[in-house]
């Protein structure tokens, strides 16, 4: 079963709902080791995206992803805006103008997203950022896609790995982003961006079922 523009838009609407539901949690996580705006920032961005999609859903998955990218870049601000924006932009480029996305395309899009985040943010695994969630997610997605899994399977594996990756940030001392200002005191807290990445992938996986 391929993934159409409508399905992608639907999935992003679901992400917006989940972000709204978790807004306070993400704010709280960011207050602990950052500046307390991550949930608010993402919620502002995805709310704007839903308004945009309500007006008009572009014709291809790539165009939907591109629309998400520009909205997030224009509306979110902070670190998450450019990082998630770049992720969606690279994903959009990676899928080109295909009418539907298969498992391989989805895994490829995730990889492109990760490469975009790393290109912009220069974080490595272990720096206690969203990269710690996205990196294992990309690995898991690729291996499922390579072994013949479908889109739902790819995304389920990515979500599962992202959740574990997010959890793995708890003991880490941050080396990128605001949490790094805390030094040793950043350990013992879940990274908000890793958490939101896991939430996003879990929601996409749910939408793909």
């Amino acid at each position: 079963m391929g993934c159409t523009a409508e399905r992608v838009a639907e999935a992003l609407r679901a992400v917006a709902r989940v972000v709204a539901e978790h807004r306070e949690e993400l704010v709280r996580l960011d207050r602990e080791i950052g500046d307390g705006d991550h949930g608010e920032n993402l919620n502002r961005g995805f709310t704007a995206l839903v308004s945009k999609l309500d007006g008009d859903v572009p014709g291809t998955p790539g165009a939907v992803l591109k629309s998400a990218a520009t909205t997030l870049i224009s509306v979110v601000g902070g670190a998450a805006g450019p990082l998630y924006g770049t992720a969606f932009l690279r994903a959009a480029t990676s899928v080109g103008d295909a009418a539907e996305l298969d498992a391989g395309a989805v895994a490829g899009a995730l990889r492109a997203a990760l490469e975009g985040v790393v290109a912009r943010g220069k974080a490595a695994v272990g720096d206690k950022t969203m990269v710690d969630a996205l990196t294992p997610a990309v690995a898991a997605a690729s291996s499922v896609a390579a072994t013949g899994g479908d889109v739902a399977g790819v995304l389920a594996a990515a979500a599962e790995a992202a959740e574990q990756g997010a959890e793995s940030t708890v003991p880490l001392v941050a080396r990128k982003g605001r949490a790094s200002y805390l030094g040793e005191r950043s350990a013992g807290h879940l990274d908000p961006g890793a958490r939101s990445t896991a939430l996003l992938l879990r929601t996409l996986a749910g939408s793909a079922r």
């Binding site: 608010e40 502002r44 870049i73 224009s74 979110v76 902070g78 670190a79 805006g81």
Partner: peptide, 11 residues
């Protein structure tokens, strides 16, 4: 001026 404690957007 960005949102409170949030950097402005490129726009």
């Amino acid at each position: 001026p960005g949102a409170v404690f949030t950097s402005p957007t490129p726009d």
